[in-house]
Structure formats: C-alpha cells, structure tokens
Nucleic acid binder design. Structure first.
Lengths: 208, 208
DNA sequence: CAGGTCATATGATCCGGATCATAGAAGCCG
DNA sequence: CGGCTTCTATGATCCGGATCATATGACCTG
C-alpha cells in the first residue's frame, strides 16, 4: 500500500498546503494528475441537485487520490480539505511514463485502483440495502478491524455516506445497541458483537 | 477501449462456453484471473442478507470483467451468464507479467479500472439521491448517448440497480413522462427531453 | 392456436425513514 | 466563566416507496 508511494516521490511537484475547508480543485477544472496526500484529510464530493453533497471519497494521510484524473482531462468532482492538508501532485504525463518504465509501479497502481473498485462496490451494496439498521450494521462491519471501529469523526458525518439522515442514523445505532449487535466505545468508537440472535445480519465485505 | 483486448489475445486460455443462467464462478472460489467476455452477457452479483441480489456489475460482449480478481486470491462475488456466453480467462500471472512487459498495457488496464471507479461513483451518487423520479432520471441520463437510451433489457430488471422496486420504477417513469422529462421509445427505449421546467433535475455524469 | 410465463401497469394499504421540533451534552472561544 | 456552536438524542408527524393485489399485454412454446 505504501510501496508505490515511494516510486512517486521523485516525480512529485513541490508540496502545497491547504487550510481546512479550502478547495484543492473543482469539478470541470483541467486535471493536473495524481494527488498524493501527505498529511490531513481530503473529501471528494459532488453537489446534488437539491443542494446536498454526495461524498464520493475520503482520503486520509498518507494516501493517494484522484487516480481517475490521470486518465481524464478534467476533474469530475470537488476536492476539499477536511483538515489542513499537505498535497503533492504527480503530473499526468509522469504517471503515464511511470506506468511503462518503473517496474512494479503498474501493478501497484492497478492494485490500488482495483481496491477502490471493490470498496465502491461494497458501498453500492450497502446503499441498496433496505432498513436503516442493516445498512448501519453493514457499514460498521466494513470499517471494522478486529471487531473494533473508530470513526475518527462525528457520527453525524457518516449519515450521508450511507444514505440516511443523522436522526435515522442515531436511531439505527440505538436500535443496534438495544439488539445487542454493537457496543459503544466513547463518542465515535464501536465494538461489533458477534453473537447474532437474529439472522437478519450480514457482513458485506468487499465485492469484486 | 478495445486496444488492450488485442494485447490479451495471445495470453488467453481457450474459450469456455456457458449456458444462460450458468455460473462462471462463485464468491470465495480461488480467482483464476481476468475474464474476457467474447459474446453474451454476464452479471456479477452478491447475495444480500434478505435473500435478494445486489447487482454489482454488468458486462456485455465484448468487454473484460473481474479485473479486481487479478489482485485478489478469491472472487468476491458471483458471476452468472445472463445469456449464453463465451469467455476466455487471462491467468493472473499473465496479467501481472503483461503489466510489466507489454508497452501500453498497463496504461490501458489502469484506464479501464479508472473508468470503473468513475462509473461506480456515479452509481453511488444515484443511490444516495432522494426521490424515485430523480434517481430514475439520473440513471437514464447516465446511460444516455445523444439524448437516447436503449436499455436492451426489461425495465423491470434495472429497478434493483437503482434501489427501487419495479413498481416504484414504473411509477417513476410514468411520472417523468407526465412531467415531460422523457419520452418512451418502444418497450425499453427512452428519449431525454432537455426542456426542464422544474429545476429539480441534474445529470450526475461520471464522478472522479 | 391455446396455455403458460413474464413484463407492464396501476390501485390500496402500510410502514419506515424524512422532516420538523425540542433539549441536554460536549466542545470551543472570547 | 459565560455564551456560542455543534453533536447527540428522541419525540411527533407526514409522506414516499414497499408491499400486496389485480389486470392487461407481450412473448414463448408445444
């Protein structure tokens, strides 16, 4: 996951800093290339017809994002810094050249994209589930590492990502606690309880 | 989009035929590699907790699918032939080798994956929309080529892909016709009408 | 052609989540 | 500390889509 980032180091443009809330780029703008997030957090989203925002992706340091922009002339969504962020750009031409010249880069880059495809499929699967509690449980199961989940941000913020209002999400979490499916760990932490008395539960995993 | 397919020709295993309804592979099975669909149609889906199926991807000849399986030891979803299909497999090792040795293949393969990422993001965006009519209109806009959409399959079948029941989809289409947003073109064809008297419309495009 | 199956509608009812409202708790800042 | 904003939480109401039911049309098949 970090091996390919080392490949990119020499190809990068100088680091750029963005304050929290600042836009890195906007949809429709000519695409510069692959983005390397060195610190902070960035959200990619698209404005919906009703004025709401569809969160398309979230990147946390250290990670890359806007991979798709490498093959596109313009960005297709907005990128905004959730927190103050430091970003380096790998120009499109450099990525294309690296794909053909740096051994192992193509495989690493493709693997990264394939991972995104699987994540997005898992997310689409969650979004097509009926029932707020099921969607919520599936989402937590997706993020869980060893039965533990730490959101690292207000519960409220994840509601739009699973197609719920924050009220519905609060209620769904309360219901899951009541049903003995999860335990709360502080404000943004959860523990998944394996004992499922009701069979109406499933972990979506990564689809691919 | 077909250039990379030519690269793959010599690497393929012999063609295999599948009858309509037959399973090409199942989730959990060890992954063989990239699949090349020469004719017919294949659906990738995952079973949901309630017994329903989440359609994860659809491939129509000529196309590749299961790209992600190249980087994974096991399949993460089921593949079933919608119609009788002819498929050739490119073994995982061959794909990895091609990524490093065949000039242009890495870029083509990555571009294909990047396109899937954009499609999936657009789909996630649609699924997070409120309102059956909006979702339906956005879906049609996504498929439209020059204002025309030809589903090529029963309307009923697309309902699960946008998180609706077929009844809700029929009603949504009827409402869109009533509102003058679309025209029907035969049984599975539609024409998008640009004149939007109400501003509650948007075309999602491809997010990325 | 007759009979069966599936797609296309549309009506009636019910329910889950959106929406609106309220309120306490937690963090933040002058 | 006191005042402000944001998050968390829950109650009340409403509405859109799920669900159930029904009917016609299209298509396939013997």
């Amino acid at each position: 996951m970090t091996a390919d980032l080392a490949f990119l180091e020499p190809l990068c443009l100088p680091p750029r800093r963005f304050a929290a809330g600042a836009a890195l780029f906007r949809a429709g703008t000519p695409s510069a290339g692959l983005h390397l997030l060195l610190s902070g957090r960035v959200a990619l989203h698209r404005p919906l017809a009703d004025g709401a925002l569809a969160v398309v992706h979230r990147a946390a340091a250290v990670d890359t994002f806007a991979e798709a922009a490498v093959f596109s002339d313009a960005y297709h969504c907005d990128a905004v810094a959730d927190r103050a962020a430091v970003v380096r750009i790998v120009p499109r031409a450099a990525v294309h050249k690296a794909l053909q010249t740096i051994p192992g880069f193509a495989a690493a880059f493709s693997a990264r994209l394939a991972g995104q495809v699987q994540d997005l499929r898992a997310r689409a699967e969650i979004l097509s589930m009926r029932g707020a509690a099921e969607r919520t449980a599936a989402f937590l199961a997706l993020l869980a590492r060893g039965g533990e989940v730490e959101l690292g941000r207000p519960v409220k913020h994840v509601a739009p990502e699973i197609g719920l209002t924050h009220e519905a999400l609060y209620r769904a979490l309360a219901e899951l606690v009541r049903r003995g499916r999860i335990e709360r760990r502080g404000r943004t932490g959860f523990r998944l309880l394996p004992g499922d008395p009701d069979p109406a539960a499933a972990s979506p995993g990564r689809a691919g």
